[in-house]
């Protein structure tokens, strides 16, 4: 059995590997190369060195505005999503009636695609809340757009993170909780000193997922605010897409932005992984 597996595994690996190479590795390196070019299409690119990067760092204020906006959005949504998801997970691991039903219900928003979700929420927020109450819609102010985005993303992701937290909470050994109780620890103390350290791996995963998801957010941004008003709710991914434009120069600039964007997300995600990993304990 093992022997045949060894002999045949390259064949089974090949399709996935080929897909990964064609769909990810090759475009990544082509993209990296193109960020140093001005190009109409990928075949008529002219090499311009660091000119695109110089433009991103000096001439394009929108990119850095979007960076700030995205960072703020990420901060708010990561905290909000994880706190609420954890709270819901706590509630749904106490064995109350209908636990499974609620878990399913909370998880369901995650099954809807971002674009559809964005458009549906846009209608709900505009016609259900903002227009009846204030006579204005989402495109009126940056704050509306910001909180609208937070709301939609939180609604969508809380359920998913909740599932991860539930599995983490269920793996906390009963004995440790009991021992803490016998030692006289209250509910809060138990949660802080026993449960939280034990679910640290789940927290690592969840913060990683929410952090990168928020940073890379595009669909919901496009559907819900489309950058309105005045590109002030335009997040990084959308800023790159809008910069792309139609000229060789704008293509190059957007490509350089995409590379910078990749580096930012990679660095932040790695830093976060390291810092939360340190807090994980061995069972």
């Amino acid at each position: 059995m093992n022997k045949t597996l060894k002999r045949w595994f390259p064949i089974f690996l090949l399709p996935t590997l080929a897909a990964f190479l064609i769909g990810f590795v090759v475009p990544f390196f082509i993209g990296l190369y193109l960020s140093f070019c001005e190009y109409g299409t990928v075949e008529n690119a002219t090499f311009v060195g660091f000119a695109n990067y110089v433009r991103v760092f000096t001439a394009d204020s929108q990119f850095w505005y979007s960076f700030g906006f995205t960072a703020l959005f990420t901060l708010v949504s990561v905290v909000l999503i994880n706190v609420i998801a954890f709270a819901v997970a706590l509630g749904l691991t106490r064995g109350i009636r209908g636990t499974n039903f609620f878990r399913t219900v909370f998880f369901m928003p995650n099954l809807i695609g971002g674009i559809v979700l964005g458009y549906i929420w846009k209608m709900i927020i505009n016609y259900g809340v903002l227009i009846p109450l204030f006579g204005k819609d989402l495109s009126y102010s940056t704050a509306y757009g910001f909180w609208g985005l937070v709301l939609v993303v939180a609604w969508q992701q809380i359920g998913y993170m909740m599932i991860i937290y539930i599995s983490g909470l269920q793996s906390v050994p009963e004995e440790q909780i009991e021992a803490a109780k016998i030692d006289g620890a209250g509910w809060w103390q138990t949660l802080r000193s026993v449960t939280l350290p034990m679910v640290m791996p789940s927290i690592t995963i969840c913060t990683f997922l929410t952090l990168t998801n928020s940073f890379k957010l595009f669909d919901q941004n496009l559907a819900l605010t489309d950058g309105k008003p005045f590109r002030t709710t335009e997040m990084l991914a959308m800023c790159i897409r809008n910069t792309y434009g139609t000229t060789p120069k704008s293509h190059g600039t957007a490509q350089a932005m995409a590379v910078v964007f990749f580096l930012i997300v990679a660095i932040i995600a790695l830093l976060q992984l390291r810092s939360t990993k340190e807090k994980e304990v061995q069972q």
């Binding site: 505009n126 006579g135 204005k136 819609d137 495109s139 009126y140 309105k228």
Partner: peptide, 8 residues
């Protein structure tokens, strides 16, 4: 409609 509503 009112001018304030055209955004949506």
């Amino acid at each position: 409609c009112a001018p304030t509503e055209i955004g949506a």
